[in-house]
Design a protein around this nucleic acid. Structure first.
Lengths: 365, 365
DNA sequence: CTGAAAGCGCTAACAA
DNA sequence: TTGTTAGCGCTTTCAG
C-alpha cells in the first residue's frame, strides 16, 4: 500500500542517478547538489528554496552517492582491511574473536571492514601491495608470519597495524598480549598443583607466539626450581589436526613410559585435538590427565577447557582505533598515534579440565 | 641485505605513483602505460621496446594501480558485501561458517569480501541502500529478518542474494537448507529411541527458520501418531543466553512435574545454554536428559553435541558464486543465473549427548 | 604503433 | 547565493 506505484520497474537497473542528474532535474548545478546531498565543503550556502528543490529531485531520482567517486577525490574509502590466513579445513576461532573486535570498533568510527584471506603468509606477503591500492585506507595484519625481509612488501602509502606480529616493522604499530607471562602463569599453576610431567604441544617454531609460550613453560619450571622432563616439548601447528597427530605420535613413541600428568596445549584448537585422542583412549580428563589450552576461544568455552585468556576482541578493537587514527593523521586530520607497541595482559581461565595429579602414575599403553 | 638502499625513505608517503607519473618517467603517454600495466583494452599493440621502458619506469616508481579509479571507470570494485547482524555479546558461529564459504569462493573468483555488521535488521534495512553505493558490486544478506515491505530498501542497481531469508524478494536469489526436514528427522529419531516428552526451545517466532524447525518438531510427532505434550514448545532467541534463560524459567514453571526426556534446542547456541543449566543442576547428559542442537557449528563439535547439520559453508560458497554471476550478467559479461531459489539438504549428526530415555521419569526439582 | 581528448561521479577553488 | 572550471586516476574512442 505504501509502496509508490512508480517503483514497479525491474530490478538490476544499469545505472544509479548521479549528482549531475539531480542537478539537471532540480535546475541547478551538480555542485549545489553535492553541497546539499553530500555535505561538500562549498564556499557558500545554498538557499532553503533550492535546497528543497534538490532534496526533492534526489528523492525522485532515488539518488545515491557513489562511494568510488567520493573515494577518488577524498582519497579515502572509509574501509579498513584485515589480512590473515584462513584455512579451508578448519574455522579459525582466533580470527573470529579478533575480527569481531575490529568490525565493532570500525563501525563505531564509521569504517567498513574488508577481509583478505591469504592462502599463507609466504605467498601472501607479496600480495599485500595489491591490497593497498585505494580500496582500503589502512591494513591490519593478523598474526602475520613474516620475517624482517618482508618489510619490502609493506607499502609506503597505507598505514598498517599488526596484531601478534613475528617481528617489528618500521612504522607499523604492533599489538600483542603477554603470551610468555600467560604461559608461565598457567604452567606455574600446574606445578603448584603438584604436576611434574607436563607435556607441552607447541605451535610452529617460526611463530614468535609459539616460542613465547614455550619460554613461559620453561620459565615456570625455572622459577619453581624444577627440571622439566626431557622430550616434553613438541612442536606442531596451531590446529586441531596437529593436536591429534602430535599427541598420538608422542604416545606411541613413549609407550610403556609414564603418562604425562598434564598437557599444556599451545592453543585451544590443539587442546581439542588432544581431547579427541584422550577420549578415544578412554583417558579421563581431568581425573587421569589435566588438559589446558591457550587463547580462550569459543572452543575452550564450549568444552569447558582451562585456558589462558588473551583479550582478542580488545586487541581487534584497539587495532582498528589505532589504524583509524593513523589514517586520519595521514590525511592531515589529526596527530598520529604515539604508541608503537602495545602489550595487553593475559589471564588464567580455570575450566573443568584441570585438576590435581593422580597419586600413582599412569602408564602409556 | 637484499633490501635496496633506496627504500629507506619514511613510511606513510602521501601519494602513490600514478599512470601519468609512469608515463612521464618512461617518456610515453599515460594510456600506453595503462595498456601495458593494467591490460587496458587499447585498439593497438605497444612495441616491445616501449613496453619494457614502461615496465621499468613502473618498477622504479613502485607504481600501484588505484582501485577506486579503476572502479569508477569499470563500474566494478571486485568486492562482495556480506550484511548480517553481529551481536557484541556473543560470537556468531553461524556467521563464521557461512562467511568462510563466502570468502573462499569469492577469493577463487578474484573478489574481496567486506562485512557489514548491522546492529539489527529493523534498523539495518534502511541502511542497505547506503551499502550499495559502488563500494561493493553485489550484496549477500545473511539470515535477514526482513518483511516483504522491506523490499523497498533493496536498491535496483546492485544484485542481491540472500541466505535463509524470511520472505521472498523479487529479483533476489535465496539459498537455504531444508530446516523442516532436518528438524523432523531429528525429532523422529528421538521418538524412535523412545523419547516422548521432548522439549523444544525454539528461536524467535518472526524467524522463518525457527518456525520451520517447530513445524518439523510437530510433523515428526504427527508422522509417529504421537500427540506432543502440552507446553513443550517455547519461543526465545537464537543465542546461548536465551537457552539458559528459557530452560531455567521453564523448569521453574514446571517444578514437580516430569522432566523432559530430551531437549531439542533451536540451534547449537541455545543447546549450549541448556548444557550450562543442566550441568549446574547436576543433571547428566545424556543419561538423564538427551540434548540436541541445530546447525552443526563449532559449538556442537566442541561439545560433541548431537545436532542437525546445515551445509553452512556450502551455502556461503554458492551464494558468492551466484552473486558474482549476477554481477557479471549485469555488466554484460554473461547470462544471469536462472536459479531463483536453492534448497540444500540437512543431515543428522549424532554426538554423545543423545541416548535412550531413562526407564523411570525424573522429577523437576 | 602511439597520443590526444573526453568522461566515469564527485568535490574544491575560484568567479560571478 | 550560485555557477564554472579543473582535476582525482584510469580507460576508451578516435585520430594520427
Amino acid at each position: 500500500m505504501s509502496t509508490p506505484p512508480s517503483s514497479t520497474k525491474a530490478r538490476t537497473t544499469r545505472h544509479a542517478a548521479t549528482l549531475a542528474d539531480v542537478g539537471r532535474e532540480a535546475g541547478v548545478s551538480a555542485m549545489a547538489a553535492s553541497a546539499v546531498l553530500n555535505g561538500a565543503k562549498t564556499s557558500a550556502r545554498i538557499s532553503d528554496e533550492t535546497r528543497d528543490r534538490i532534496l526533492e529531485a534526489a528523492r525522485r531520482l532515488n539518488y545515491r552517492p557513489n562511494a568510488t567517486a567520493r573515494a577518488l577525490t577524498h582519497r579515502r574509502m572509509n574501509t579498513l582491511g584485515l589480512a590473515t590466513t584462513l584455512s579451508r579445513d578448519e574455522l579459525n576461532q582466533y580470527f573470529l574473536e579478533v575480527f569481531n573486535g575490529v568490525i565493532e570498533a570500525a563501525a563505531e568510527l564509521g569504517q567498513n571492514t574488508t577481509v583478505f584471506a591469504l592462502p599463507d603468509w609466504a605467498q601472501g606477503a607479496a600480495r599485500i601491495p595489491q591490497l593497498c591500492d585505494g580500496r582500503i585506507d589502512g591494513l591490519i595484519l593478523l598474526a602475520p608470519l613474516l620475517g624482517a625481509e618482508d618489510a619490502r612488501f609493506l607499502p609506503d602509502h597505507t598505514p598498517i597495524v599488526s596484531i601478534h606480529a613475528n617481528v617489528d616493522f618500521p612504522g607499523v604499530i604492533n599489538l600483542e598480549s603477554d603470551e610468555e607471562a600467560g604461559a608461565q602463569a598457567m604452567v606455574s599453576h600446574l606445578l603448584a598443583l603438584g604436576h611434574r610431567r607436563i607435556l607441552h604441544l607447541a605451535g610452529p617454531s617460526h611463530s614468535l607466539g609459539a616460542r613465547r609460550r614455550v619460554d613461559g613453560y620453561r620459565r615456570a619450571h625455572e622459577l619453581a626450581g624444577i627440571e622439566p622432563p626431557p622430550d616434553h616439548v613438541v612442536v606442531g601447528d596451531f590446529n586441531t589436526e596437529s593436536g591429534r597427530r602430535l599427541l598420538t605420535q608422542w604416545l606411541q613413541a613413549h609407550r610403556g613410559e609414564e603418562m604425562p600428568q598434564a598437557i599444556f596445549a599451545g592453543n585451544d584448537a590443539i587442546a581439542m585435538g588432544c581431547l579427541d585422542v584422550l577420549t578415544a583412549r578412554g583417558i579421563a580428563v581431568p581425573q587421569q590427565v589435566s588438559l589446558v589450552g591457550f587463547d580462550d576461544t569459543v572452543l575452550a568455552r564450549a568444552a569447558r577447557l582451562a585456558t589462558v585468556r588473551q583479550p582478542l576482541r580488545e586487541l581487534g578493537q584497539r587495532a582498528a582505533r589505532l589504524l583509524v587514527d593513523s589514517v586520519d593523521a595521514k590525511l592531515g586530520d589529526a596527530a598520529p598515534p604515539t604508541v608503537t607497541n602495545l602489550v595487553l595482559p593475559t589471564e588464567l581461565v580455570v575450566g573443568t579440565t584441570l585438576g590435581a595429579p593422580r597419586s600413582q602414575p599412569l602408564r602409556i599403553e
